[in-house]
Structure formats: structure tokens, C-alpha cells
Amino acid sequence: MTWTPETVRNEVIQILTPHVQADAALSESSHLVADLGIDSLGVMEVIADLEDKFKLHIPDEALRQVNTVADVTQAITSRLKGEGRLSE
């Protein structure tokens, strides 16, 4: 299936939402831990769900640069693009 930046973003938000603590506002610049209250184990769970949803693998090294919601989206779109699965 082909994704667009829009559908990727929506899907990321959908996957993040159950992990976000009550009434934390979710935006592109939200820091996963500091703003959304997702603990470090929760972050790993989110990554696993994202990998399953988008059928891709996020290597550990790339993981180390993920801090915000925008970082998550970026990590996904850059990989989808590399595999020719993103239409802009």
C-alpha cells in the first residue's frame, strides 16, 4: 500500500493516542516523554506497533534520534520514501 505524509501522520497519531496520558495535548512538537507522559517502555511499544503497521524496520541507531511526534513521523516517511511507498 502507498502512503502519503498525511495518512502517515494520522496513523502515527492513532498509534500514539492510547499511550498518551489523560489530557496531554498531542501536537507535532510534543516530546514523547516530557509532554505526552509516555514512559520509556511505552516508547518501545509504540515503535513495535509502528513497525507492524507500516511493515518496516526502524534500526536502533535511528531510534536514538526520536524525541518528538514529528521525529516519529519523519523516521517513518523517510523509510517509506526510500522503499518507494510514499507518494507526496
Binding site: H31, A34, V43, D60, R64, Q65, V66, N67
Partner: peptide, 16 residues
Amino acid sequence: DTASVVKEVVKSQIGY
């Protein structure tokens, strides 16, 4: 984080 000079924040296993 913002104050940190190093932009490229590296994440590791142990934090978890």
C-alpha cells in the same frame, strides 16, 4: 534537551 549544545541527541538502551 533544548539547552544542550549537541543537537543530535543519542538515545540508548539503558534509559529504558
